[in-house]
Simulated scan of single mutants.
Amino acid sequence: MNSINIGIDSQDRQDIAAGLNQLLADSYSLYLKTHSFHWNVTGPMFNTLHLMFETQYTELALAVDVIAERVRALGERALGSYSAYAKRTEISEDNGVTDANEMLKQLLEGQEIVIRNARKLYPLVEKANDEATADLLTQRIQQHEKTAWMLRSMLA
C-alpha cells in the first residue's frame, strides 16, 4: 500500500483510528441492543417504542458505516467482529430485558456512553488538525444527544 500523506502524523492517525474504533464498537453494540429491543418490546407503548427503536437502529446502522470508512481513510483497519466490539464497549448486551421502561433506561445509558467516548477523542483530533474526524464526531454527538433527550423524555 502507498504511504499516506494527508497532513496528519502517522501516530496521530493511528491514535485517532483507535478512538474511532472505540466509537465503532460502542455504536455497533448500541445498534444490536436497540434492534433487539425493537423486536422484543411489549406493552401499552408497543407501537410508539417499536417505531422509535426502528428509527434509532436504522440511524446507527448508517453511522457505523461512516465511522468505519473514516478509520479506513486514516489508513487503519476497522473492527468488524462481535468479539472485538465486546472487548472495547461498556454497553451491556441485551440479556432478556422485557420491561419497556428498563429498555428506555438502558438505551439512554448506551447513548450517553457513546457521547462521552466520542467527546474524549476531540483533544487528539484538534491537536492533529483532523477536521474531517472532528466533523464526524460533532455530527455523532449531536445525534446521540438528541436521541438521549428523546429517551429521557419518554422516561419523564
Rank of each mutant, 00 (worst) to 15 (best):
S3D: 00
S3F: 03
G7V: 08
G7R: 11
I8C: 03
D9P: 08
D9T: 12
D12F: 14
D12A: 15
R13Q: 06
D15A: 13
A18C: 07
L20M: 00
N21L: 02
Q22F: 01
L24W: 09
L24D: 07
A25S: 10
S27I: 01
S27R: 05
S29Q: 09
Y31S: 00
L32T: 14
H38T: 06
H38N: 06
V41D: 05
G43W: 10
F46Q: 07
N47K: 11
L49A: 07
H50L: 02
F53Y: 15
T55V: 12
T55N: 08
T58Q: 12
L62S: 10
D65A: 02
D65F: 05
V66A: 04
I67Q: 03
A68L: 05
A68V: 11
A68D: 02
V71Q: 07
V71D: 03
G75R: 11
L79R: 09
S83M: 08
A86R: 12
A86V: 14
K87T: 12
R88S: 04
E90S: 05
I91L: 05
S92F: 06
S92H: 11
D94T: 09
D94W: 12
D94S: 03
D99R: 07
E102V: 15
M103F: 10
L107N: 06
L108T: 11
E109V: 10
I113F: 05
R116V: 09
N117K: 12
A118V: 11
R119M: 00
L124H: 10
L124W: 13
E126A: 06
K127F: 01
D130I: 08
E131Q: 13
L137P: 07
R140N: 05
I141V: 15
Q143Y: 01
H144V: 02
H144I: 04
E145Y: 10
K146A: 03
W149E: 02
W149C: 04
L151C: 04
R152Y: 05
M154V: 02
A156M: 13
